[in-house]
Design a protein around this nucleic acid. Structure first.
Ligand SMILES: [Mn+2]
Ligand SMILES: [Mn+2]
Ligand SMILES: [Zn+2]
Ligand SMILES: [Zn+2]
Lengths: 133, 133
DNA sequence: TAGTTCATGAGAACTATTCTCATTACGGAG
DNA sequence: CTCCGTAATGAGAATAGTTCTCATGAACTA
């Protein structure tokens, strides 16, 4: 159903080459810097399509804006993100899945979804800020 | 340092009487319906003050807007929220805390924060939607 | 290759939130 | 109790992310 266009290819290719989460506006800027002319609205639309297809993950940053990333894992997973440099680790959270399911059941809830995201300073950024002191 | 004003009292009292998460705009509307004249900007400012004081919790909904609630628990905790009626359960997530700490350490991350929120259908809403079928 | 339909671009529109700044009113000092 | 300094408020403008509108362009299909 989705049609293959120059713009969609450009967005998909960009995401393939970028390891961290980025906002739609960031990605639009990166495309522009690469000389790719894609309208901002098209970037938004494409990200939505890719998200619906499950090809990209989206996470809301603390400021509330959505950030997108092409993840390795196909299946459901969570993230550990460096809030300084953006380095991202994909997490398999079996322990948390079990906990969430049990808690929901215990309270009579059904059809449960969850959000679990970890933010911190990666080893490199952590040591750098320690140096700065 | 924070000054006690009619407006702040109104917002705080409202939160005391409302059990679920609500957006700033919702709360503003509720105040208006109660005959309390408080400017929207003041509702926002007051919620920020109360949040900073740790007297209210804020969580970002799926649509990205912040929702506020006065919680029972003083300490750090998470929530299980009915996405139909808003009923909220406060969760003590010791198991998840341990998991998050261990994962972060294992990846060399420091200064880690996390978001963990569960959304589903409460017992009542779940059975109602089953009936509808 | 021609026609149908989906996708795009440009900018307007929307929404949540924050900011500006003139005015009001806590709350401590006297 | 009254006066003052200063924090808080109100009204609307300003911001910022995201979505929508609609005329135009480009994929696919027969
Ligand atoms: Mn999970
Ligand atoms: Mn926790
Ligand atoms: Zn880092
Ligand atoms: Zn419910």
């Amino acid at each position: 159903m989705p049609r293959t266009t120059r713009q969609r290819t450009a967005v998909a290719d960009l995401l393939d080459g970028v390891p961290d989460f980025h906002s739609a506006q960031d990605l639009h800027r990166m495309l522009h810097d690469r000389g790719e002319r894609v309208a901002l609205a098209t970037v938004y639309r494409t990200l939505q399509v890719l998200t619906d297809l499950g090809e990209v993950d989206s996470v809301r940053g603390p400021d509330g804006e959505l950030r997108y990333r092409r993840c390795e894992a196909e299946a459901h997973h969570h993230h550990l993100v460096c809030r300084s440099c953006g380095t991202t680790v994909e997490l398999d959270a079996a322990a948390v899945e079990a906990w969430a399911g049990g808690i929901a059941r215990a309270h009579g809830f059904t059809d449960v979804e969850h959000t679990v995201e970890l933010f911190g300073l990666c080893a490199r950024c952590g040591s750098r800020s320690a140096d700065a002191r």
